[in-house]
């Protein structure tokens, strides 16, 4: 589904990623683990198509087509979703309005019928309930004044509505207590299926106990220095990044 080939990325002229290769098939969950400054967030932003992240070499292909040069919205329409480490606050735009506008924009781009207000409302209520997102939260401005846990739940709610094929979860565990973490993981697992795939980017292993990866990669200095199965994450937990990279 996703092929990253010899990816070099520079930010502000400074090389951050130095030749990343990765192949992710439908039905798989890959974890990319690495210490601070290893290039994890850069990888998630460049996949989502953020401005300012310059691909100097290599390619990113999604379902066989290159994503390079596509705007973030075009990638979203193709089925890519990035859950941000720090979701952005948008004053004055209610969560409900945001969800409806984005869901319909993506549906329209995929050639699906837009949802009218009542059917959308039903859908949101049903999905929100599973993630323990109360109605009151939907009426508030998006992410404004949300706690860490509320922000992450809102991200997963967006994911469940936009129905992507590939989800990239950037440090989704940061700022979550164990109950919130379980809730978020359940949301991801419920969404996951044989036609879908996830890339979990994380510093710590604890999220991977709840979202179990099929593959684990270790990122250091802008390169993948080791790849393996879920046991690699456990090894990391025991010996630390220095031990694994060495």
């Amino acid at each position: 589904m996703l092929e990253i080939e010899n990816l070099h990325v520079a930010v502000g002229g400074k090389a951050i990623l130095n030749g990343i290769g990765l192949r992710l098939n439908a039905g798989e969950i890959h974890a990319v683990m690495g210490p601070n400054g290893s290039g994890k967030s850069t990888l998630s932003y460049v996949l989502a198509g953020r401005d300012g992240y310059e691909v100097t070499e290599g390619d990113i292909r999604f379902e066989g087509e290159s994503l390079l040069g596509l705007a973030p919205d075009a990638r979203a329409a193709k089925g890519l979703f990035l859950a941000l480490q720090y979701p952005i606050e948008i004053p004055g735009v209610t969560t409900m309005n945001f969800l409806r506008t984005t869901t319909n924009a993506v549906r329209k781009a995929r050639g699906m019928a837009e949802l009218d207000a009542p059917s959308f409302l039903r859908l949101v209520r049903e999905r929100a309930k599973k993630l323990n997102v109360p109605d009151e939260m939907l009426k508030r401005a998006l992410n404004v004044g949300f706690s860490g846990g509320e922000k992450k739940r809102a991200e997963i709610l967006q994911m469940s509505l936009l129905e992507p094929k590939l989800a990239i979860l950037d440090e989704t565990d940061s700022g979550l207590d164990i109950d919130a973490l379980k809730l978020v993981a359940e949301g991801v697992n419920a969404w996951m299926g044989p036609e879908r795939a996830a890339l979990v980017i994380t510093h710590y292993q604890r999220l991977l106990k709840h979202i179990v990866p099929s593959h684990v990669h270790v990122l250091a200095g802008g390169r993948i220095v080791r790849s393996g199965g879920p046991e690699l994450a456990e090894e990391l937990e025991r010996v630390g990044y220095d031990g694994v990279a060495a």
Partner: peptide, 8 residues
């Protein structure tokens, strides 16, 4: 960026 990554 956030809005665009959600498809707008």
């Amino acid at each position: 960026f956030y809005c665009m990554s959600r498809g707008l």
